[in-house]
Simulated scan of single mutants.
Amino acid sequence: MQMKIFWAFFKVGMLGYGGGPASIPLVHKEVVDTYEWMTDEEFQDSLAIANVLPGPIITKLAGYIGFVKKGWLGMMNAIFAAILPTIILMIVLLKLFAEFKDLDWVQGMSHGVIPVVGVMLIILTYEFLEKAKAKTTWKFIILFTILSFLLLAVLDIHPALVILLIIAFSLFRKEGRI
């Protein structure tokens, strides 16, 4: 099991060029689809919690998932696997990149990542919405999305508070109070 944990998060670390947003769909693919360590709902919950906490999203997800699967050793294994590719690339490629950063193909490669990450996030969002639709209505989802946008963008409420409000709302709704 430790080797599977290492390999799953090592692949995420190797292929997650573009930072956290680019890596989230890769983590989802590994832990939900490939190894079936979590359900979609469990992954969504862990992603929501990881977004509230400070620090890089992938190390938080790796640490949590590794801990759930194999305790403290699994947590350390998953975090190390997730950051090892970055450590290697930083040491080996940083000087090369600095020398070639002004070349057109290097700049093009860097700019080409942005639309790929956008599409991956759209696909993940669509999949989450499809799962949410099975438990509620589109009217509720749209209303909830608009309300969340207003709280975050218009009223500038901290995302942690919005997530706490959503958790409280969900608990009251589950108990039939709302």
Rank of each mutant, 00 (worst) to 15 (best):
A22T: 01
K60C: 02
P54I: 00
I142W: 03
K11S: 15
E42A: 05
M14P: 12
V27R: 00
I79A: 08
I88V: 14
F100N: 14
K131R: 14
T125S: 13
K29Y: 08
G63N: 06
I142K: 02
P54M: 00
I114L: 07
I87P: 04
K60L: 10
H28A: 03
I114E: 06
I123Q: 13
K139M: 10
W37T: 03
Y17A: 07
K11N: 13
G13V: 09
L129D: 07
W37A: 05
A22V: 02
V106I: 08
I122Y: 03
G74T: 06
E41P: 06
K101P: 10
P115N: 00
G55E: 05
T125A: 13
I87G: 13
W7K: 12
L124R: 13
H28N: 10
I65R: 01
L96F: 15
V117C: 09
F140N: 11
M120S: 10
F67W: 07
G112I: 03
G74V: 08
W105D: 09
P25K: 08
V113Y: 05
D104I: 09
G20H: 02
L129Y: 11
K133C: 11
Y126A: 14
G16W: 02
F100R: 12
G13R: 10
I65N: 04
T136C: 01
K135G: 05
K69W: 09
D33E: 14
A78P: 13
K60P: 11
V68G: 05
I58E: 04
K135V: 05
L47G: 04
G55M: 06
Y17I: 12
K95Y: 06
I57T: 04
I142M: 05
I142F: 06
G108M: 12
A134G: 08
G63V: 01
A81L: 06
A48P: 11
K139F: 11
V116A: 08
K11R: 13
V52D: 00
L93G: 15
L89N: 14
A8M: 05
G19E: 04
I123S: 14
G55W: 02
L84F: 14
G112M: 02
D104M: 08
A82D: 07
P25V: 06
Q44T: 07
M109W: 11
A78F: 02
S46N: 07
E130M: 14
A62V: 01
V12D: 10
A134I: 13
A22Q: 02
T34P: 00
W37Q: 04
I87Q: 03
M75S: 15
E130R: 14
D45S: 10
L73A: 06
M90V: 14
I24W: 06
L61V: 01
E99Y: 08
F97Y: 12
F10S: 15
M76R: 10
P56C: 00
G112P: 02
I91L: 12
M120F: 11
F140L: 11
K135L: 04
I83W: 03
L94M: 14
L84P: 13
D40M: 02
G55F: 04
M76W: 06
A134K: 15
K29W: 08
E127H: 10
G66L: 03
K139D: 06
P56L: 01
A22E: 02
W72E: 13
I83C: 07
F9W: 01
F97A: 14
W105L: 12
S23A: 15
N77L: 12
W138I: 12
P56M: 00
F10E: 15
K133R: 15
P54W: 00
G108I: 03
A62L: 04
M90Y: 12
